[in-house]
Structure formats: C-alpha cells, structure tokens
Nucleic acid binder design. Structure first.
Lengths: 255, 255
DNA sequence: CGCCGCTTTGAAGGCCTTCAATTGATGTGG
DNA sequence: CCACATCAATTGAAGGCCTTCAAAGCGGCG
C-alpha cells in the first residue's frame, strides 16, 4: 500500500519529486526548483493507525495535509451527538482546508486505516505561494476541487434516491482508485457501512439493502468490505440523471 | 437598498474605502494604501435585474464577484433537468468561487432582485494578492467561509427534519441581515418558496406547510415574501441539536 | 381589470426509517 | 488453535415523514 519505503521516524524530510503522487497532488505543474522549495516545508510524521485523528473539531488550523497513503474520513459532531460525515480522502488529496474562515477546524479527520500524511505548515505554505504563482494556483485549484466535491454531494443529498446516491459513491471511489493506478472494478472499502450511510444521509440498513439489490441485479458483487463491479455501464446509467448538465462529455451518440 | 448613489453606467471605477460593506467584504483588514490598489482592479457594471445571470454553468471563470446590493441564487442543473440550489448571496459576500478547479463554472448564479455587483478579475486579483499578504489571507478566509457554509448545509441535508432545516435557514437569513444593519426580526425574502425548498432538499409544499406550522405555533408570522420572527428563542432552540458541538458559545448556564 | 404564476391546503401513497433479531467477521484469552 | 465475546452487516416487518397529485386562494404584472 505504501508508495515508497516504510517511514516511521519522528519527523522526516520528504521529497515530492520522488513521490509518484506528484501529478495528482499539490506539486503538479511545479518546476524542479520550485518543488525543492516545497520539499523544504513538507515533513512526514509517524503514520496514523486506524482511528487516529489527524486533527479534531475545535483545533487550531496549523497545517494543510496531503494524504500519502491510506485513507481518512472527516466529520462533524453536532450538539445532539449526531455525526455527519463530510468526506473521504485518498492519496494525493489535500486535507484540512476546513476552518480556513476563522483558523479553527470545524470538523474532525480520522484515519480509516494505517495512513501516512505529509504535513504542510499553513504559514510556510502561504509565504511560499506568494513567491510561486504556480503553487498558489495549485492551492486554489485544490480548494476549488474541495468546493466542487461538496457541491456534488449537495446534489446527491438534495433529492436523489438511495440507488443513485450509492451508485454515485461507488463510481467516485472507482474513479479515484483508477486515477491512482489501482483497479477501477475491484477494491476494498476502507470505510464501514455506517460511514457510507452517514455520508450519504440515509440509514445503515438502507445502504445494506441497496448493496444487496445491486448484488441481486448483477451490477456488483459485494462481500463486507470487498466490492467487485460487474456492470460498470449500468452503474453509470444510474447516475446519469444526477450529473451536471455541463459535464456532458463523449458518449453522446444522438443529437 | 443601494448602499451609495445609484450607478448604471457601463463600467465604473469603485472605491472600496467608501463602501460601508468594507468590514464584511474582501477589503476587511486592508490598509488604506492596499485598498487603493484593490480599487484599481475592481469595477462595477450595470446592475443585474431579477433573473439575470451573473455567469452560467459551463462559462469560463474570469472573475470573482462581490455583491454590493441585492441578492443572488446559485444552482446547478443536472442531466435530467433537476435544479439544485447551492446557496444564496447577500451584500459583502464573494460569488463565483465555484469552478476554481478547472476554471469552468459548475453552476449558474442569478439575481433574485435588482442587484449590483463589483467585479474582481481573477488574474489581477491573483497578482495583487501575491503582493499583499493580507489580501491573500482575506481571499482564503472567504473561500473557507464558502466551504464552511457548504458543510453547514450538508449537516442539514444529512438527517435533519424539515422543521430544523427551515428554522436554520430563517436564522441564517436573520443573522446575515442583522450583520448588514437590517432588522434581524423582520425582512422580505428575495427567494421563492421553490428556491427555499430546493435549497433545503424538500418539496415546495412541505416548506409551505412548515411555514404554516411556525405561524400557528407563534414562532413567526409569514405572509408571502414577508417574514416577522416572533419568538427568536424558540427558533434557536429548534436548531440547537443541528449546531456543531464546537460552536458552543455563551448561553451555557448548566454544566 | 383579468390572467398567470406563486403559495397554500388537503388527501393518498411511497420510500426510507426505526425496531428487532439473525448471521457473519474480528480479536482476545485460555 | 479454538471458544467465546464483541462488533459489523444483513434481513424482516411496521410505521412515519415527506412526496406527489390535486385544487383552491391570493398577488403581481401587463
């Protein structure tokens, strides 16, 4: 799972240029010399183990974090103890952008499995990005990605059926695994049914039932955390109506 | 409604320092000389009238926009023609941050009433913010505000009742009007029931019914677009369970 | 002034939730 | 290495909240 050799020392210097995530992570599009400057402010601590919090709701915002390997879930807890899962994070994705408004994290982010993190101290990153326009652009791009991801979820939570929500969720995972060089059709879920149901705004039992329906309909095989997509087309058909009309790509055979 | 004299010329230079919105808008915390530099890149066009689009889904991202007066609604349209309202914008708020990922707007933003807009060309703003750390900080803060606003909506859409959703919505409006110097208890809604229901992920009829319930319970009076809050405490009690546990402020009398 | 669209209200139905119980996985100690 | 305890996931049944369909009331605008 780890992308390069295992690291569990205190705090280690990291070389972005040696990381195969470069192209989907922050350094994308940076020149060699710019990447060296970025490396100077990036460090990596001991990996988090399952359940460890990267930061907690109410913590001061000190750093952004890039996922190196593993995965995380971020969520907020409300006054009545209800959790709302806000998102899941995979290698190459930037975490900790919440709480930029008042420098206080508004959610907790926890490792779903053993997870390795690159830390980017916020102040250093700000200073550096003032010098490197392309870095500033990358930060804005990743902030935009976060925003647009939230909008996609709003779209789902607005008025979509459980079938559509779960199909969209599975396809999102599939796409992200694929972008990282893993299989787009077979993968293990690092999150529980509870996490999925909570994220998608439905009951756990409803998710379980929908998985069974997909299984029964031959769309996918699912056994606990293992998912195997059997009919990708059908899955994509299900989510078509939920897609933004501006996302029309190829596949337009008719008018 | 307009904050200073009426302006409907082609494209006019704007002086942020003369705008009473300064404190809630982008220039907050900027020194006099910095504000002058910001003024150089800000311009204001003819006001939008109700229904006019500031930009459309699929448009290239050229500028950020600050609301000067009036209000807007942003929404995406899906493949099956469904709309999802993503948010409402009031004076001092920054609009157009969507589509930062790929420089293409992922939603449409329309004026709900006659609305005056300050335009901030994206490239100029980027260049200027590289020179002015406090401006960069403001931009990040407003991006964070947008993100955190989306998270609040996710919280509502996740598992909250109609009563909680509508109460939270009304309180959000009340707070924003109050911050802008208007009454926190009496105001006119610039958006339709359809817009509200769509934003909150329920049917129009359900919103209408909930308004009637609030009216019947003496929480507020509502007549078409006019709302008068009668029992602010009750409204706040309703939303307490939906609030983030980290948002505990005063009002804690017990343990 | 009259039409059209927004809002309200009523009634029936559906999708999802909740409650309950079983089955299957995970992990620890004997 | 297996037994048992614990937790996660599945499945069934009943009920509820919200949706959908339908129609009437009310305002705004030409």
């Amino acid at each position: 799972m780890a992308y390069d050799s295992v690291i569990d020392l205190k705090q280690l210097k990291v070389a972005c240029e040696n990381c195969r995530l470069g192209e989907i992570c922050l350094p994308r599009g940076l020149a060699q010399e710019e990447m060296v400057k970025l490396d100077n402010i990036v460090s990596r601590g001991r990996p988090l183990v399952k359940g460890d919090a990267l930061y907690r709701q109410g913590d001061k915002l000190d750093s952004f974090y890039a996922v190196h390997s593993g995965s995380l879930r971020s969520y907020t807890v409300t006054q009545d103890g209800t959790e709302q899962t806000l998102g899941f994070y995979f290698p190459g994705e930037l975490v900790g952008l919440d709480g930029l408004e008042n420098s206080i994290h508004s959610c907790t982010t926890e490792a779903l499995e053993t997870t390795s993190i690159c830390e980017l101290p916020y102040n250093n990153l700000q200073n550096l990005s003032a010098q490197l326009p392309s870095l500033q652009h990358q930060i804005m791009r990743l902030l935009g990605k976060e925003l647009s991801g939230d909008h996609d979820v709003l779209l789902l939570l607005g008025k979509r059926s459980v079938e559509e929500r779960l199909a969209a969720f599975i396809l999102s995972l599939s796409k992200r695994f694929s972008e990282r060089g893993f299989s787009s059709t077979e993968f293990n879920l690092s999150m529980s049914r509870h996490d999925i149901s909570n994220f998608l705004g439905v009951a756990v039992e409803t998710i379980s039932r929908q998985f069974s329906n997909f299984d029964k309909d031959g769309v996918l095989q699912v056994k606990y955390r293992f998912v195997k997509i059997l009919d990708m087309n059908k899955l994509e058909e299900i989510v078509i109506p939920c897609k933004k009309s501006s996302d029309i790509k190829e596949k337009q055979t008719g008018t």
